[in-house]
Design a protein around this nucleic acid. Sequence first.
DNA 1: TAAGCATTGTCACCCC
DNA 2: GGGGTGACAATGCTTA
Lengths: 100, 100, 100, 100
Amino acid sequence: MIGVKSIVGTPIATRVHAQGEGVEEINAGHLRAFVERIERLHEERKALAEDISEIYAELKGAGFDPKVVREVIKYRAKDPDKRSEEETLLELYLSALRQA
Amino acid sequence: MIGVKSIVGTPIATRVHAQGEGVEEINAGHLRAFVERIERLHEERKALAEDISEIYAELKGAGFDPKVVREVIKYRAKDPDKRSEEETLLELYLSALRQA
Amino acid sequence: MIGVKSIVGTPIATRVHAQGEGVEEINAGHLRAFVERIERLHEERKALAEDISEIYAELKGAGFDPKVVREVIKYRAKDPDKRSEEETLLELYLSALRQA
Amino acid sequence: MIGVKSIVGTPIATRVHAQGEGVEEINAGHLRAFVERIERLHEERKALAEDISEIYAELKGAGFDPKVVREVIKYRAKDPDKRSEEETLLELYLSALRQA
DNA sequence: TAAGCATTGTCACCCC
DNA sequence: GGGGTGACAATGCTTA
């Protein structure tokens, strides 16, 4: 997937390595900055996922069914028009199957 | 899947039912055929999963560690060119970031 | 995760390596047999997955909505009791939210 | 809407719904609070995902290959101890299977 | 020791 | 088509 060819064709970040020290330093620094920003965001996202898991645990402890709450969340997230459209189609298919 | 119950008895599915029998019949039959083929495949897949589980049980009974064997399987599965790809990436990563 | 420690503790398959040739041969052969059986099953499973994808493509070409057909499959797969139970709970939760 | 009969037998959070106003209010409120907290977290996560996308766009604009950077991120993410783990597994695998 | 539970890993689906 | 996300299943742990 990441063959030599594609690396050769990758413009600045890699070619830079063969260039002068000054420019190279700047580009590698840029790459590092990008990578670290992304990794930071990844960490935040992971923390968020853990928070969500905690809420489901809480919620379960309070007697609610986590599975159904997930369905509720999905239900509310859907666009109302699309939702009824899909439900109508589903019903149509099911009724078709009953009489097929 | 959501709110199917409340949809049962809604107009469209029955309106369709009041339309031309021929076309409707054909489509319902097609739908049923598709659905049943998929369900059949699902069953086969499930049977396969059970077979795999059985082998792991056997294997465990023979004194092998199922967890380790799972890793072996994974290792062999991604072996083809992934490994060299990762090594290439390592070169790329090292040459670009170690100097940042 | 699969540290040296856990491998040392893995009974036959690994200890065998330090044992006499005869027994070792047999166990390695067993391991290979297990691994190959599992890999074979994995391949069959993959083939099955592809078959299913093909059917969805066909079905889409015939004018059915693949997404909705997936819902139909899931709907039929569920145990009727569990299904109505969940739907009831979902309805209950939604009605609770409307008035909260 | 939902018959009393279907509510009877459901766990605490739902039985409550058929009880006095006070308790019911509290539980519906709890459910709403849980749901809204989750939805809020979902939004934050979505915002994060957009931030990440933006960085990849920036990065691409700066001449880096987004695909390669993704691989770098993945590589660094699993680096900690996975690598040595895989090497250990390799030893195990080779010593056990090469002679089968 | 069995059984429920929590966690993890794996898998399929969806969106981009 | 590829990456991200969510659901599901298997495993190990903990408790009764």
